[in-house]
Design a protein around this nucleic acid. Structure first.
Lengths: 237, 237
DNA sequence: CGAACAGTTGATCAGGATCAACTCGAGTGG
DNA sequence: CCACTCGAGTTGATCCTGATCAACTGTTCG
């Protein structure tokens, strides 16, 4: 059941049987969340951690007047609220599709980290990659124009979904609305719509009904000035 | 010599003598960097970690055409390249003033984490706060207008410098140019200049010659819609 | 059948970018 | 001591990317 997590960790660091065993013991009756439900809530000080087992989710913050910024999209295997281990959540995580999540009591997690320090480092590492993605998004939102920004996001999404085994490298289910895209990119929905039409018009991709199809990977990558290095996908420890 | 680090960690978690001792042993002959020098270089796969002991520095990424995004500012006590423990650096850290940094071999750090798992968690926690700041910046760059963005940054800077003992809460040395500010905020230098004049005109602050003086904290906070929760300064573990 | 929501289009507006010129020190070198 | 440069800050004029507003289509779903 925890295979997405194990696959994620094992991409960087071969796990020993005892470690794999310890991870398995985190599993419990997964909790189900309908699409649109909050998996993690801002202001909460959780007593357990949620590990996404199936489905997709996104992390976001919202301003008083309702303007929203999506900070990341998540695939199975990712721990959604490490932050909650140490402090109050300063943002929420919301289910994009129906999701299943393992709910792991903090003490259980901490005990595992103490028994298997290498696993603590492995989780920390996952966390660092998340930070790297935040930084790349900041660069995009702050310094790239809308066209490159949209293209870049789709490049990232495709690669990450593929790494999670959710895409063949050309098409993938990415069940977001144009409003979600806008909120992730710091654009208005109208403008996002127009940029999508451009990208479609260039024959780079199509995106509708939550399905992304990339028709010209090289072209899309160029349009987004995309370099996957920041995802740190192929760096062994 | 490592007192800034110890103060930082101890803010959240009282350290035991053995732990404090272990931290002290990280100290070595600090390395000096002139203003403008790179403390950490993108593309590097370092064999040691740099811990800022004195001075100020900033983290940034640069696009092919030279557009730059500053991702964070750093004060003494912060570990600048945890990322390098696990993977290649995907961005650089540059000295704003002359800096001193302890250069800690990775094996030494890892050994300490193994001997004192709580310290690993403490460092991880520091790292999570950094991530929280990234997210807040994303929200600002993506969704706040220039005026609020500038005000928000100054609020954050003042609070963080104060927490680091580098400010009395009203004024602080913050030796950046308007260009630095622009690159941190995703604005042009010209526009940043105009917003600064507004803030000055409203009597909220003055900023020149690298010195920040906040004259109306409540007003500045309101202008920036600033809520310090995301800095997680006063949350014990 | 009617809501409700996602997507699309056109028209208009504005926030902030860009370009260019100028000021004002702080060096620096003749 | 002056001329010069260089970087930072400032100002004005203009432009443009992307926001906003509003209407309309199409689909799904109760």
């Amino acid at each position: 059941m925890l295979s997405p997590l194990i696959a994620l960790l094992e991409r960087y660091m071969p796990l020993e049987p005892a470690e794999r065993q310890a991870l398995q013991e985190l599993a419990n009756q997964p909790r189900r969340f309908p699409a649109g439900a909050d998996l993690v809530l801002e202001g909460d000080r959780p007593k357990e951690a949620r590990l996404l087992l199936s489905g997709q989710a996104f992390r976001h913050k919202t301003l008083a007047d309702g303007r929203r910024q999506i900070m990341s999209f998540h695939v199975p295997g990712e721990l959604l609220d490490v932050q909650g281990l140490f402090m109050t959540m300063d943002h929420s995580v919301c289910a994009l599709t129906p999701c299943e999540a393992a709910v792991i009591p903090h003490p259980k997690l901490v005990a595992m980290f103490e028994a298997h320090p290498r696993l603590a480092l492995a989780f920390w590492r996952m966390n660092l990659v998340e930070g790297a993605v935040f930084r790349e998004w900041m660069l995009g939102i702050g310094r790239r124009d809308a066209y490159a920004r949209v293209a870049h996001l789709f490049c990232e999404v495709l690669i990450r979904l593929r790494a999670a085994g959710l895409s063949d490298g050309a098409r993938a289910a990415f069940p977001v609305t144009q409003q979600h895209l806008s909120d992730a990119l710091g654009l208005s929905a109208v403008h996002t719509n127009r940029v999508l039409q451009q990208l479609r018009g260039q024959g780079l991709l199509s995106f509708s009904g939550g399905e992304l199809v990339v028709m010209d990977w090289a072209g899309l990558q160029a349009a987004g000035e995309f370099d996957p290095a920041y995802l740190h996908l192929s760096e062994a420890n």
